[in-house]
């Protein structure tokens, strides 16, 4: 068993695959993070991300997978789900070792797992498209904080750009401390320094109408409920509690 330590990037993962084939490794384990000199195990390889190697692997993948299949693999890695790198590497190796395109070979455990990961990522992406709640700031920027289970912010760009083309907006991932900012022209990644923001300023930063519309929305949410049909179990399945703190109607 050889442990490959890599930097967590997609290029890093592809470089690792390159080394697996170069050293003809069979049993491998992926690990994200720093290389510690103190841990002198024999079977550890430190993967240094190298674009030329990553590109060669990528080229190979492009030949064996459909464009969609590659996108799915990319999204599965980007989600940063704990402990799934071994499955992703297993998947990539299966792609290369097979003669035909194996994207739909759901009987294979790696293909199945990647399809499960993609399903979970998609669901989280859809949840965020639904659960983002913008608040209008004084400068007419619409601000929203989210805490998705997986890293899905990059997957949200297209949807929100297409939809809110005529307003400035920020979607901020509190858990991963980075956000998206659309300034009516472009979307870019940003990070905010909350430590220096005075709470008083935050409230005065909201537009005067903001509280009114939040109240109206809460009122609406209460009005459309039909008590005679109450079904808490179903409600919680659709809107799990961990999302409530950013949902205007549930605060």
């Amino acid at each position: 068993m050889t442990t490959l330590i890599y930097d967590g990037t997609f290029e890093g993962l592809l470089t690792a695959v390159f080394e697996i084939y170069e050293h003809r490794l069979t049993h491998v384990r992926m690990q994200k993070g720093e290389w510690h000199n103190t841990a002198l195990f024999e079977n550890v390889i430190k993967v240094v991300t190298e674009n030329s190697r990553a590109t060669r692997v990528l080229k190979g993948l492009k030949q064996k997978l459909s464009a969609q299949g590659l996108q799915r693999l990319y999204a599965a890695h980007m989600a940063e789900m704990e402990g799934e790198d071994d499955n992703l590497v297993g998947y990539i190796r299966y792609v290369f070792d097979a003669q035909q395109n194996i994207e739909e070979d759901y009987g294979n455990k790696y293909v199945m797992r990647v399809s499960e990961i993609v399903r979970m990522v998609r669901r989280e992406k859809h949840r965020m498209e639904a659960f983002v709640r913008f608040q209008e700031l004084k400068d007419k920027t619409f601000y929203s904080a989210i805490e998705p289970d997986f890293n899905v912010l990059p997957l949200l760009i297209k949807h929100f750009r297409n939809r809110y083309a005529d307003q400035k907006w920020i979607i901020y991932d509190m858990r991963r401390s980075y956000g998206l900012y659309y300034d009516l022209h472009e979307t870019q990644y940003i990070s905010l320094d909350f430590a220096t923001v005075n709470p008083g300023n935050v409230i005065s930063a909201y537009d005067d109408h903001e509280a009114v519309y939040q109240d109206l929305w809460r009122n609406y949410f209460t009005s459309v409920n039909i008590p005679a049909r109450k079904n808490t179990k179903l409600h919680l399945r659709h809107v799990p509690k961990r999302y409530w703190k950013h949902l205007t109607e549930k605060i």
Binding site: A130, F131, N225, R229, K230, N231, L234, H235, H238, L247
Partner: peptide
């Protein structure tokens, strides 16, 4: 679906 009522 942006949210769900308490009746689901």
């Amino acid at each position: 679906c942006h949210t769900y009522t308490e009746d689901g």
